[in-house]
Design a protein around this nucleic acid. Structure first.
Length: 251
DNA sequence: GTTCTGACA
DNA sequence: TGTCAGCA
């Protein structure tokens, strides 16, 4: 019976592990042509085709347990349906990966920008931004975990977004950006801004003092509300420090 | 030397 | 899914 091959020969031919072939047998989807007197499994051409079929279905993400049903009863239409479902899943995985790619590109780009001249004021033109209010609190009361929990918005991946702290007299309005018009509109215009790396509350207070001082020296700027953006995801670049951007609209 | 079964992570 | 032991 020289024309039949052993399990290791089949595994070499088909690029799968011996273990995997035995596993397919355990799941009753691939049997040897016969078992030799030494109990060795022996395989012929039909088994090679059968294994190809199984591997193709595996490639289409069909679980091994379902392959059994497929091969027992599937019509061409069933296979067509199977393939289009598999295609949909792949498409959605690709969509997710593209989102992930864009998010990573955004982080890298922002980090590059952040790495450029720190510690001085610049001006940039910003488009309209729509913000949703999250929590409003007195400036002297710090945020705590319970505040955040009890007022949690229905937004996934909240800390991947830029958090906006809008300073409004003695209150702080914590907001996050949304696409559609919402509670607060930050109007298009020129904004004075500066990047900060912060390790304590004190750093932020110092920064505010510096900004006020700067604005005093530039009376023509007619500043609006001061906005502090927390770049949550950029903070992973520096342990124990948070990345912020301080912004103020100017005329 | 190769494969078998069974067990384990 | 890979790896190992113990056996034939």
């Amino acid at each position: 019976m020289k024309e039949f091959i052993t399990i290791s020969e089949l595994s070499t031919l088909m690029n799968v592990s011996v273990h995997q072939i035995r596993y397919f047998e355990e799941k009753e989807i691939l049997f040897p042509a016969y078992t030799d007197s030494n109990k060795y499994r022996m395989y012929g051409i039909p088994e090679i085709y059968q294994l190809s079929h199984i591997l193709l279905l595996r490639k289409l993400n069909v679980p091994v347990v379902e392959i059994k049903e497929c091969m027992a009863s599937f019509s061409p239409d069933d296979y067509h349906q199977l393939l289009s479902n598999s295609l949909k899943k792949v498409q959605s995985q690709m969509d997710q990966l593209i989102m992930l790619q864009q998010f990573m590109q955004k982080i890298v780009k922002e980090h590059d920008e952040f790495a450029s001249p720190e510690n001085h004021y610049q001006i940039k033109l910003m488009e309209d931004r729509h913000l949703k209010q999250w929590i409003r609190y007195e400036i002297q009361h710090n945020l705590n975990a319970r505040n955040l929990y009890e007022n949690r918005p229905k937004l996934p991946d909240l800390f991947e977004a830029d958090l906006h702290y809008i300073y409004d007299s003695n209150q702080i309005n914590l907001c996050y950006e949304v696409t559609a018009p919402s509670d607060i509109l930050l109007e298009k215009g020129n904004y004075l801004y500066k990047h900060l790396l912060v390790s304590s509350e004190q750093d932020i207070e110092d920064e505010f003092r510096q900004l006020e001082h700067y604005l005093m020296q530039h009376q023509d700027m007619e500043p609006g509300q001061i906005i502090l953006l927390e770049k949550s995801y950029l903070s992973m670049f520096n342990n124990h420090k948070l990345h912020y951007e301080i912004q103020v609209r100017i005329s």
